[in-house]
Amino acid sequence: MTVAAAAQPTSSATMFSPRWIADHLSRWPLHIAVIGLTAAWMVPTIGLLVSSFRPFSGQATSGWWTAFANPTTFTISNYTQVLSAGTTNLGQAFFNSFMISVPATVLPVSIGAFAAYPFAWMKFPGRNGLFLALVGLLAVPLQLTFIPVLSFYVQHLHWTTNNLEATGIPGLPWVPLWLAHAGYGLPFSIYLLANFFRALPSDLFESAEIDGAGTLTVFFRIVLPLSVPALASLVIFQFLWVWNDLLVALIYVGGTPSVAPLTVNLAGLTTSLGQGSNLLTAAAFFSMIVPLIVFLSLQRYFVRGILAGSVKG
């Protein structure tokens, strides 16, 4: 029995009988605490959401909570303004975020899946040491790696945004960022998948071996199909991580509007528009749309990814 079940009053009492009322009254403080804390937690988000639908005049002179007294003033003009081309490049940044996040998810997940398999089911010298090293790398500050990678990109490969855009090949300007995210995401990807693979019953592998399945067959026909939940968790985790990333994008692609993702763009807007601008509220909410949709629809997988990744620093 869970604590929740244990703590439930054994309410066999008939409804509205004195005992029923007593049972339920005694739990009021609990409900008030739970709902109160949750509501308090929601206040910052709700405040921003309400503000984003208020005109500039309202935002600058009164708190968001006063808006409910006068609901007619709500407007979507903040959104139309912020999304209109020319002022903020937010639309461009939105697509850029996709162009960055999708490949930067596909790469570490697929490379990681192949690499995780030997860590889980093959014996080779150095396996445990390598795995431990990967776990260690999970917590290494990425800052430690920026300067050499960046100078390699710029001074040796001449991979600057300008040079790469000049080639005219679509997608090329993001390649430095994709590869960097792949490198940074791989330790976690391998860690999560190897642990999942390892938990598959060994009988399945032995049975497949007797049935005549080779390494490739076992991987593609047994391991991968059985690992769909883990792969889904990883994909969502990595996608949100990259989508929400500011630092890595800032370092490797910087603020050039044609390539910068939403986070960089939004951070830039706080400087260019000045903090407290009415447009910022709308821009912030716009940047949250995709993560919130992913979170609300695939929450189960996301939480599982977080749980598995509790060692990721």
Binding site: P201, D203, E206, E209, I210, G212
Partner: peptide, 19 residues
């Protein structure tokens, strides 16, 4: 190799491929 021994094995857990 196991697959070339012309044997078949039934496991305690049955080892059925769940998918």
């Amino acid at each position: 190799a196991a697959k070339d021994r012309d044997i078949a094995m039934v496991f305690q857990s049955y080892a059925l491929y769940p998918h």
